[in-house]
Simulated scan of single mutants.
Amino acid sequence: MDVEHVEHDIDRTQPLYTEEQIQARLAEMARQIEADYEGEDLLLVGVLKGAVMVMADLSRALQRHVEIDWMAVSSYAGTRSSGVVRILKDLDTSLEGRHVLIVEDIIDTGLTLSWLVANLKSRGPASVEVATLLRKPEALEIPVDVKYVGFDIPNAFVIGYGLDFNEKYRNLRSIGTLAEHVYS
């Protein structure tokens, strides 16, 4: 879906990343990941549902073999974090001795990601690192070490490229700020 289909739902005063900007940044991140994991087997762990687009495009930008697995976790009741993280879908792959790269769409508070990193590290991997397309530094409540960041963004409600509001806008090819009239 293109922006023209939802132009009244997008706040045009906030930064917007086009599909081309996203793809270019993911390609840059892929080159760094290739260099950092040269000669190592790598397992990408995508966090459902938001990371589907990032995982697909990042993995295709890599010029090497990688394995892929998925995990779904939730800490939200409605629009607020409950503080309790639940695994909705666990990995199908053992992490023992593996180099693991968690792939996220966005990091805001860091609460769920912090829990996820600790959980995966407890499974005996060789390493656990994080790659995210977007990070909101102003929203962080818990510091999380993120090795690969696509873009740092303001603390605004963004949609598109996997990011949703009430399960809508995930298939938008670009990233935009949701207009306040949509969610207020």
Results as ranks from 00 to 15, higher is better:
Ser82Gly: 08
Phe151Trp: 06
Val45Glu: 03
Ile102Asp: 06
Tyr76Glu: 01
Leu58Pro: 01
Ala51Asn: 08
Val144Pro: 09
Ile33Ser: 05
Glu138Lys: 05
Ala118Met: 11
Gly50Gln: 12
Asp11Tyr: 07
Leu113Ser: 07
Leu26Gly: 06
Lys136Asn: 15
Ala24Tyr: 03
Glu40Ser: 09
Pro154Phe: 07
Gly110Trp: 00
Ile107Leu: 15
Gly150Arg: 00
Leu95Arg: 12
Val52Pro: 05
Val130Trp: 00
Val149Ile: 14
Arg64Met: 08
Pro15Arg: 00
Leu91Gln: 14
His181Ala: 14
Ala72Ser: 09
Glu38Trp: 02
Val130Asp: 00
Leu26Thr: 02
Ala61Val: 12
Leu26Ser: 07
Ala30Met: 11
Ser81Gly: 11
Ser122Lys: 13
Pro137Gly: 04
Ala30Pro: 09
Asp108Lys: 01
Ile142Met: 06
Ile102Pro: 05
Gly46Asp: 02
Gln21Met: 12
Gly150Trp: 00
Thr93Val: 14
Pro125Thr: 10
Leu91Met: 07
Val73Pro: 04
Trp70Asn: 04
Val73Gln: 03
Glu4Ala: 08
Asp90Gly: 03
Gly162His: 02
Ala30Ile: 15
Glu104Ser: 08
Gly78Thr: 05
Leu26His: 09
Glu34His: 03
Ile87Asn: 11
Lys49Phe: 09
Glu19Cys: 01
Val144Leu: 07
Thr109Pro: 09
Glu180Asp: 09
Thr112Trp: 04
Tyr17Gln: 00
Arg60Ile: 02
Leu140Gln: 01
Asp152Met: 03
Ile10His: 15
Leu120Val: 04
Glu167Cys: 06
Gly110Ser: 01
